[in-house]
């Protein structure tokens, strides 16, 4: 079974989404390098997946990091020294043993890493959004290219308007993805911050 993660920018939501499949008797066998595609396989054991978030590590530290998690029974699915996000899976051993963090200090720190990660993720989209607004890409004049559209009257206007709308939406699609990503990653930031303050 294959699943693709499209717009789940929030890491905790992504983890929940993945664990939903694992609870139905699957385990993850592969995460594609773009980290949005997951391959699942039926299994008789209950698995759990966790997404860890770490600052970029030196080669030696990364080795130590992986080795330690593996000693605790986790197997590494996907990530790299500088990917920020690391996917870990293991056979479920109960609520407490299935966590990556066991005290307040480290849980708080985990949310802080997620906050930094979402800000880094949001930054390019945010800058692009600002450029789009500044260039007026989102104003009706630039979206509807029919000349004199806004001076037309009555049914002629509506016909031309409705004819042009699908094209305008198409033109709007890319900017919407950019702005949507900026909004989603910023809202993830605020959710992490709320959780961090609750710990």
């Amino acid at each position: 079974m294959k699943k693709t993660n499209w717009f789940r920018i929030n890491v905790l939501k992504e983890e929940q989404w993945l664990n939903g499949f694992l609870q139905q008797g699957y385990k993850i066998t592969k995460v594609t390098s773009w980290r949005s595609g997951f391959v699942f396989e039926k299994t008789s054991q209950a698995y759990v997946v966790r997404i860890d978030c770490q600052k970029a590590m030196k080669k030696e530290a990364f080795e130590e990091y992986k080795l330690m998690y593996e000693d605790f029974g986790w197997s590494y699915l996907q990530g790299s020294r500088s990917s920020g996000k690391h996917y870990w899976q293991k056979v479920s051993e109960g609520q407490e043993a299935d966590q990556l963090f066991s005290d307040r200090q480290s849980t708080k720190n985990y949310y802080k890493q997620l906050m930094n990660y979402s800000l880094m993720f949001a930054l390019p989209f945010f800058v692009l959004s600002c450029i789009l607004f500044q260039q007026g890409t989102l104003s009706p004049d630039n979206m509807y290219l029919t000349r004199g559209l806004w001076d037309m009257e009555g049914s002629l206007f509506w016909k031309a308007f409705l004819f042009e709308t699908p094209f305008a939406l198409l033109r709007l699609f890319c900017p919407l993805i950019v702005i949507g990503s900026a909004i989603l990653s910023l809202s993830a930031y605020y959710e992490y911050r709320k959780l961090q303050q609750q710990v």
């Binding site: 130590e64 990091y65 998690y69 605790f72 043993a97 990556l100 963090f101 480290s106 985990y110």
Partner: peptide, 14 residues
């Protein structure tokens, strides 16, 4: 009473 998780131990040692 105290059972350390992998991430907590790694972070603390670091």
């Amino acid at each position: 009473a105290v059972h350390l998780a992998a991430g907590t131990l790694y972070g603390a040692l670091d």
